[in-house]
Each structure stands twice: as structure tokens, then as C-alpha cells.
Design a protein around this nucleic acid. Structure first.
Lengths: 179, 179
DNA sequence: CCGAGATCGTTTGATATCCTACGATCTTAC
DNA sequence: GTAAGATCGTAGGATATCAAACGATCTCGG
């Protein structure tokens, strides 16, 4: 790759490695003392860590059922929009349709959803929750509510709305173009 | 901000599917009109979308080099902590050591890093950037700075610090236990 | 010293995800 | 009507990720 333009203005930023330290101890135990440098203050990096922590927290709550955040989102959207297609569901939850295929196959196998051929368009499926699906959703909803309450406590209830709006601005603003 | 006591005491029941609609049209084009229900206000869900949008935005900027956010984080941490081990790097950037193996192999193949056997512990590698690695890092740093500036504009410079701290609270608070 | 247990990096296996390709079907321009 | 093009769900390939298991090596108690 190395394109020609790479005329080495280099050096530039990234702070220096703090003059030859004695090899910097990265303790055996696990940890600590690893400098993150600029990363420590980059929104994108912290956003990733926060998202993963949230995902793990949710998964921890629902661990036993084997249903993860993604399943919850799918069941919820199907519940809210009975009869929608797989493609529409994917767009709503932000996943490619091909990613949903195996997920929905599994939810169907578990008896949580039905995939009826849409009368109006025989290529697509009309997704619906079965009674068992509604039940599973209610159960997940309980975990989700508890999880969101935990997030709320950390965010600070008084900041919740502003935080949410900031996230939405990021989502909308990065939707496929930036400067 | 607005948080009238958590206005929505949880509409408890995932709101109803709006009595049998005429099958709810999910337009062909790309659509819209898909109700997200409670998902719309869940921090975890919006956090995921925001993180993915940010990742995509960064990747779009560095697309040509083939270096993604993960590579940037790795190069930066190595730069900041020359000589650290793969395990320590993984802990710092939040990735399992086994995930880094192929990534580092590639960075080495590209000549961006060196993996010297650590004198003190011949099981581990002492990671360092090569001059080419420093150069690549500087280039990525430019993209990262631009990207973060874009995020800044969306977050609102005056909210940046608070937003960052909120993310850190979430990360720390969910670190492996909640209620 | 010496052996038990821990840790390092790798390998392998399981998911998750995207993209591209594909057959079936729908829509639309003629 | 009909044929070209778009879209639906699926299959396959590529990458990313974690967890478990493994050989090599280190550490520590005796």
C-alpha cells in the first residue's frame, strides 16, 4: 500500500515514548501501568469500551436463557411491528439481513417466532411472535429494564436524557458522511 | 435535563403491537415506519449504534490504508509503552491476547512493529514500533484527530468532557458486576 | 534444586458480522 | 404483456472476537 503521498511529515504528534524507560514494567499480575496516551481521551475508544461493557452487563443478566441483546432487540421490534420482513427488521436493529438469517432460524426453532410467507410478496416472510415469544420477550424486558436502571444510576438520572440525545446526534451525524 | 422523574415508569409491558394493523407497510425503498418501541430510549441500544457509527466513520477515513481503529489503538499503545507484551497490550486495548496474535502478525509482516523476545521472559515478546510504524501511527493520528474533531462537533465541545466522564463511569461501573 | 502451578503466545473452535452472489419473485418501462 | 431491473431471503467467504487447550517457560515453596 504505502502510497507515495506518504512524504513523511511524520513525527507529528503522538507524544514521545517518554524517554527510554527501563523497559517499563508491565506487571505479571495483570496490569496497570500501561499508558494509553491520547487514547484515554478519545471519544471513539471510550465509546467502544462502554458499549462492550453494557453488552456484557446485559448478557450477564440473561446468561441462562442464552438470549443476548441482539435477540432481545429482534423480538422487541417484531412485537412492535408484527408482520414485518427480515430486511426491515435488519434495518431497524442495524444488522445486515444475512446476519439475521441464522438468528431468526434459531428463534423459530425455539418456537419464539413464526415466519409466514407474506401474501403480498412471496419472497419475504411476515415475522410474528408466538405466545412463547411474547413470554420470552416479557422476561427479557424485565432484564432490560433492570439493566437500563443500572446504566441510569451510573449515568446519573439527571443526565440520562442529555446523554441519550448526544448518542442520537452521533448516530445521525455519522450516518455515512463526515467532514 | 429533562428527566421528570424518569417520566416513563416503564410502560411496563412493551407496549402493544397496536391492534392488528393492515400488515404494516414496510416500504420497499429502504423504509422507515418501523417502530422501535422501548428500544428507542434504551441506553445500551443507542450506545451500540453510536459506537458502530463512530467505528465506521474512522474506518472510512483510513479506508485506503487498510488500518482500522483496532490497529490504531494497538500502534498507539505500543508507541506509548515500548517493550510491552502482547498480553499487556490486549488488556490495555480491551482485546483478548488470542485476538491480537493475527493482528500483530500482520503488523509485523507489514513492517510496522518488531517482536523481540523479552530477555527477562523468553515466553513473551517485547513489542516496538519500527520507524515505518511510527510513520503509520502519525498518519493514523491525523485521521484520528480529524475524526475526534467531527465527534466533538456532534457532541458539542462544551459537553465533551461530561460525555467522556459519563462513558468512563459506565465502563468502570459495569466492569463485571452490577445489581 | 525440583516440581506444582501460573503465565506467555498460539491454535482451534464457536459466534457474530459484513459483503457478494444467487435463485425466486416483484415492479416498472415499454 | 413482457422483459429489464430491483428486492427478498439464503449461502458462502472473509474478518473479528472470545474461550479453551496446549507447549514452553517462569516462579515459588520446600
Amino acid at each position: 500500500m504505502a502510497q507515495p503521498t506518504r512524504a513523511t511529515p511524520a513525527r507529528a504528534r503522538t507524544s514521545k515514548p517518554r524517554a527510554e524507560q527501563p523497559t517499563l514494567r508491565v506487571l505479571p499480575g495483570g496490569l496497570a501501568s500501561v499508558r494509553l496516551g491520547p487514547l484515554q481521551d478519545m471519544l471513539g475508544f471510550q465509546l467502544r469500551l462502554a458499549q462492550e461493557a453494557s453488552f456484557a452487563g446485559f448478557a450477564r443478566r440473561t446468561g441462562d436463557s442464552g438470549l443476548k441483546p441482539g435477540h432481545f432487540a429482534a423480538l422487541l421490534v417484531i412485537h412492535e411491528n408484527p408482520g414485518l420482513s427480515q430486511t426491515a427488521l435488519g434495518a431497524a436493529v442495524g444488522r445486515d439481513k444475512s446476519t439475521l438469517t441464522p438468528k431468526l432460524t434459531e428463534l423459530e426453532r425455539r418456537g419464539l417466532i413464526r415466519r409466514d410467507r407474506a401474501a403480498a410478496d412471496r419472497r419475504s416472510y411476515a415475522l410474528r411472535l408466538t405466545p412463547e415469544g411474547e413470554e420470552a420477550l416479557a422476561e427479557l424486558q424485565r432484564h432490560a429494564t433492570a439493566h437500563d436502571a443500572a446504566l441510569d444510576r451510573l449515568v446519573g438520572p439527571e443526565n440520562r436524557q442529555a446523554f441519550l440525545e448526544t448518542l442520537r446526534r452521533l448516530i445521525a451525524g455519522l450516518d455515512s458522511d463526515d467532514t
